[in-house]
Design a protein around this nucleic acid. Structure first.
Lengths: 189, 189
DNA sequence: GTAGGTTTCCTACAGGGCTTAGGCAAATGC
DNA sequence: GCATTTGCCTAAGCCCTGTAGGAAACCTAC
């Protein structure tokens, strides 16, 4: 019988597609095996198991997001950079909800340190260079940016902010304006 | 043989404890049944299944959080109210991580509308009464509060913001200060 | 080109979890 | 005290995980 050509990379890529289509919970060894017309047991020479698959999706998502954010940020500063930064995350989450979900999985310290997660905080600091904020406020501000955007994106994904007549895009712009103002007054401490 | 005295409420309560101790993923019909020294099949006359159990935990968590937030808010306004509001959520999430996790489960529209989730936005609006913000900005501000606090709490839970020497409590206070200032200047925009 | 070794995928199996169906025993109500 | 209702049981089917060991495809080197 012809071989399916399984590799860790292809398995993780399939897992990522599955996550986006059906949710991270549907990413299982069985489901991924089905995508390759292969028995579930065949995956175990390539990956450790279901957890490995999900962690793989998380690492992939962190890399892809960092790439997109970096590209969005190129040549921008100030409010422009802030909007590009936030927009890149939001767009990614909407295009790849399962991957985004995976990116929030807890990673052990070692894996986290070797992941693209590190680039994310560097990118946030790049945005803040447009705002003249010194340490330790800069660290506070990095956390604030992460919190606001991750929070907004995940609440938007869960509820769609659909219970009121106010448009979510309008709230998003409003939030960016206010955050920009907040950071601009940031050097005051 | 003696009966175990199962009820939907007791099952959900046990599921909530389990969630806090071991994570929401460990909340299964089997695991809850073990807590009552009962076979898993016995649960099915009381609850619909595993999903029901988790949804039950979500609804419980929403109720408990709304109660605590309401209590924390009593008699406070302005920055005091803001800090009490945010602190109540953060404390709850730390005391009951599994319940907090469950509270973010997507609920169908009908269930969401009948849940205590509705009270949460009312409580956020109560905080904003101290800041003189009219619609539609008030809705934007409600979303901002939800985003910042939920985002902060979930990032804190996942990473502990432990990769840098800057204390998380300090960032939290800084965030509250800045948010207070932002809302105070809010009537302008 | 073909023999050996390696890799890839297979079948088989053990272990759990979910959930339904149907039965017996305990509680309840009359 | 007896009938009914309720609560928990066993049994069984299905799906997922992960391990072990086998067979076939691929590679290498003569």
């Amino acid at each position: 019988m012809a071989r399916a050509g399984l590799t860790p990379e292809r398995l993780v890529a399939a897992a990522a597609e599955l996550a986006d289509e059906a949710g991270l919970a549907q990413v299982t060894a069985s489901a991924v095996a089905r995508r390759f017309d292969v028995k579930a047991a065949s995956l175990y020479s390539h990956i450790g198991g279901t957890d490995d698959l999900r962690t793989g999706v998380a690492l992939l998502a962190l890399r892809e997001m960092a790439d997109r954010v970096a590209e969005a940020l190129a040549g921008r500063s100030g409010r422009d950079a802030l909007a590009a930064f936030a927009g890149a995350y939001r767009d990614y989450a909407r295009a790849h909800p399962g991957r985004y979900e995976a990116a929030r999985l807890p990673l052990d310290h070692e894996t986290a340190m070797a992941s693209a997660g590190v680039r994310h905080s560097q990118l946030a600091r790049a945005v803040l260079r447009g705002y003249d904020i010194a340490e330790p406020d800069q660290t506070h501000a990095v956390r604030l940016l992460g919190s606001v955007f991750h929070g907004y994106i995940s609440l938007e994904a869960a509820t769609g902010f659909s219970h009121t007549p106010v448009d979510s895009d309008t709230s998003w712009q409003w939030t960016l304006d206010r955050l920009d103002a907040l950071l601009r007054s940031g050097s005051a401490g």
